[in-house]
Amino acid sequence: MGILAGFAPWIVYWVLVGNVPFVAAVLTALGVAVLSLAIGRVKGRPGKTLEIGAVGTFVVLTILTFATSQAFMERWIQPLSNVGILLVALIGVMIGRPFVREFAEADQPVEVTQSDVFGRITTRVTWIWVAAFAGMTVSSAIPPTVQGEATILDTKTPLSFVCYWLVPFLLLGCAAVTSRVLVERMTAAATSPDVVRRTTFVAFRELAIDELYYLARERVEREVGAGMEAYDVNVGTAGIPLTGDESRESWPATYKVRARR
Score class of each variant (00 low, 15 high):
L64G: 01
D232S: 15
Y214K: 14
N82F: 06
A89V: 10
L212E: 13
V202R: 13
E206Y: 14
L87N: 03
V32D: 04
A238L: 10
A259G: 10
L170M: 12
G92W: 03
I85G: 02
M94Q: 11
V110P: 04
G135I: 03
V110M: 14
T145S: 12
V32Q: 05
A89Q: 09
P79R: 00
L80Q: 00
I11Q: 09
A106H: 09
I121W: 07
A8D: 07
R222T: 14
L166A: 14
V34L: 10
C174L: 15
T28V: 06
F103V: 07
W76C: 00
A29T: 02
Y231D: 04
T123C: 09
A106T: 09
R258S: 04
V110A: 12
Q108P: 09
V15H: 07
L90S: 14
F204A: 15
V181K: 06
L153F: 10
L159R: 03
T49Q: 12
F169N: 14
L37E: 09
A8C: 09
T178Q: 11
P79F: 00
I85Q: 01
P79H: 00
L90D: 06
V88Y: 02
N19F: 12
V202G: 11
A104W: 04
G148H: 04
E111V: 08
A141R: 00
V12C: 10
T49L: 13
T191Q: 13
T187N: 14
W165H: 06
V23G: 00
E221G: 10
A208E: 15
V60N: 07
G2R: 07
G31H: 01
N234C: 14
A150S: 08
P46I: 02
P143V: 03
A134C: 13
R258P: 02
R248Q: 15
V130A: 10
A208K: 15
R45A: 12
E206C: 07
I63A: 14
V130S: 07
V202H: 09
V162L: 11
M94L: 15
V112L: 13
V83S: 03
I63G: 08
V17A: 07
L170A: 15
D210A: 14
K43C: 05
V100Q: 04
V23A: 06
A208M: 13
E221M: 12
P158R: 07
V112H: 09
A131W: 08
R120N: 10
K48F: 12
I63T: 08
W251V: 12
C174F: 14
V130R: 02
I95G: 12
G239C: 06
K156N: 15
E149A: 09
L4Y: 05
P168Y: 03
N19G: 12
K43P: 07
V257P: 06
G119R: 06
